[in-house]
Computed example of a mutant assay.
Amino acid sequence: MIRSDKGVFWAILLPLIAVLIWSLNIAVTRYVAEYISPVSISFYRWLIAFLILTPWILPKVWQQRELIRPHLKQLAVLSAFGLVLYQGLSYTAANYTTATNMGIINAFIPMFTVLVSLLILKDIPTRFAVLGCIISFSGLLYVIAQGDLRQLSQLTGHAGDMLMVLAVFFYAFYGVFLKKWNLKLPLMLSLYVQIIFALLYHLPFILWFGLDHLNSQNGLSVLYAGIFPSIIAPLVWMLAVQYLGPNRTSIFMNLMPVFTAIIAYFWLAEVWGSYHSIGGLIILTGIVLAQMKARVHIQAKS
């Protein structure tokens, strides 16, 4: 029992590290937006990840090609939603909004997943889940409007936030499709094939918009994006799921807005306003309400 407790203690650090990496990546995305186009950083990110993974993963992909081949269409769809649409829109949104807002909107992934699950999986949400979504969405509108809901009529001033909401909505599709298909593939093999599709998807955009050169202003940010959030964070998160389980691990995602805001405050000098605190509290209340009801419901059935 003591050994198990120690294992759980150290396992708690795993999702914290992953969320910290992803939070820092949001700040990096906002920082580098002035020095490289969204298409360029998105392409370079997955190119770096591809080059790093290829020596280890490509032989395994070839060995298990018969296992992978039937799932190519599904992996192509996953890549489009999770690696291209979500990431591409996030990089575009960074040109028009703050890292703090991006982190807060990212916390909406569980809420949007409930809605997408209703559309695709026909999973009927509980009344508490619906109430949690409504409360959280109210908090999101409050943050976007900077505490003055009358500003919502001026949509042009919130283009970055709207793009980020759309990005998170696409990522919810990614998660629901993963659940629906439940691919029996090793995580890294699945990720590697999705990266290949992502690089292919970028080619038309590169031909149209061009590709920015790497330099001293954007090089380190691109390198960070290609290594830490693309490879290390998913691996650490996967280990956390193995030790803690998916439900306990997913709770740590709620720390992303907090980590992002702290990083953005000290690094990007972004101001944390009272509307962030009020709206963030409303959002967190809705998320906790939905998750608490889900746990109670499961315990009642068992």
Rank of each mutant, 00 (worst) to 15 (best):
I105Y: 02
R69Q: 14
H276W: 03
L118C: 12
L200A: 06
Q87K: 04
L119H: 07
P15R: 02
S136L: 08
C133V: 02
W62I: 15
I287V: 02
I278T: 12
F81L: 00
L131T: 09
A99E: 04
L155G: 07
M162I: 14
V222M: 10
N106E: 01
F252L: 10
I17S: 11
T54A: 14
L20T: 11
V143P: 09
L24A: 15
P55L: 09
I287L: 09
Y265F: 15
L119I: 02
F112M: 04
A233L: 04
L16G: 04
I144R: 05
L58W: 14
P70S: 05
V168A: 04
A94L: 02
S274E: 08
R127P: 03
N106R: 13
Y31V: 04
N95D: 06
I195P: 06
S23G: 13
P70L: 08
L47T: 10
G245M: 03
L255N: 00
R65C: 15
L223S: 08
Q151W: 09
F173E: 06
L152V: 07
L152H: 10
Y224P: 11
Q63H: 14
V143R: 03
A294Q: 09
V114C: 04
A94P: 01
Y86T: 05
L85K: 07
A172F: 00
G103H: 03
